[in-house]
Design a protein around this nucleic acid. Sequence first.
DNA 1: CTAAACTTTCAATACTTTCTGAAAGTTTAT
DNA 2: ATAAACTTTCAGAAAGTATTGAAAGTTTAG
Lengths: 167, 167
Amino acid sequence: MKYTEAKQELIQAWGNLGSSWGLNKTMGQIHALLMISPKPLSTEDIMEELSISRGNANMNIRALMDWGIVSKVALPGERKEYFKSEKDIWALARQVARERRKRELEPILKVLKEVNEAQTDSSDESKEFKKVVKELKNFAEKSDNLLETFIKAEESWFWNTVLKMMK
Amino acid sequence: MKYTEAKQELIQAWGNLGSSWGLNKTMGQIHALLMISPKPLSTEDIMEELSISRGNANMNIRALMDWGIVSKVALPGERKEYFKSEKDIWALARQVARERRKRELEPILKVLKEVNEAQTDSSDESKEFKKVVKELKNFAEKSDNLLETFIKAEESWFWNTVLKMMK
DNA sequence: CTAAACTTTCAATACTTTCTGAAAGTTTAT
DNA sequence: ATAAACTTTCAGAAAGTATTGAAAGTTTAG
């Protein structure tokens, strides 16, 4: 396989992965492109490489910046804005974890806490509900703590511990 | 908050969470309903509780069974099929991890391995590409191992280790 | 200030996914 | 065998999401 094919395949695959990770296809593709590029790219570069419109490029670059995994670069003597991606895969993973925690875990935790306060009447349904909610809440809280630890962890410390777990 | 409100809110929230977890809203809602129900429910029960069509109910129950988190129950003396959900939250988490590994991690790993074999020419682009792919592949493999460990782990052992990690 | 260079917005459109409901298929009881 | 009870399928409708491209907005150079 040649470099250009390989590049296309990776961009494509990263786009698909994006869709299962709360990004969308285009966000994933732009991110892949920036990750493998040795130098920052402009909106036009991205439009051209991925054959997408200006509006699409602009919106998705913005969304990637909201996620905190892409940032602007000012190139000296250039008027255009250029963009680069976080390349340290660990920093990237932590950033994604941070965002997903905020977007997914926090809302459900809030609901579980609320709902855990609900009055129980004496029906079977109501008792089972209470029991399940308690377990879910407990699990969600543990997950939240674990995630927090991961987000704050230094790479080596984390891997050392994880590697121990995996023998 | 009363039980019936609380129930609706939980079902709603679990539906939203489903969407970020590779299920869809209805799958999430059906799953929530089955989780909190003290007894198995029929397709009709589900249709009624969630106000959805027969086709929709059928397809999404099926999808949940494919994921391995919902199963059929035959009630003695009843002709209808009833369904129940896995209620052990740990078993549930492991099952979801297993499916997502298969659906997300395996495909990207395959691509990374393929693409890692690509020929490098002497250009900057090509060298950077190779370097990034190597790092991604390494990370993906480590994640795969970690996930495998989790999937196979006994609850207490896993939590003991994790709790140590979290001090 | 003005014009060129560049970025952002957004209404219209294209595309994708989900849902419905009725028809077809299957199973069970008699 | 047949009819009632139940399940599955699937084409079309509805809802949701992504994309375009042109117009509006902003910044910079001179």
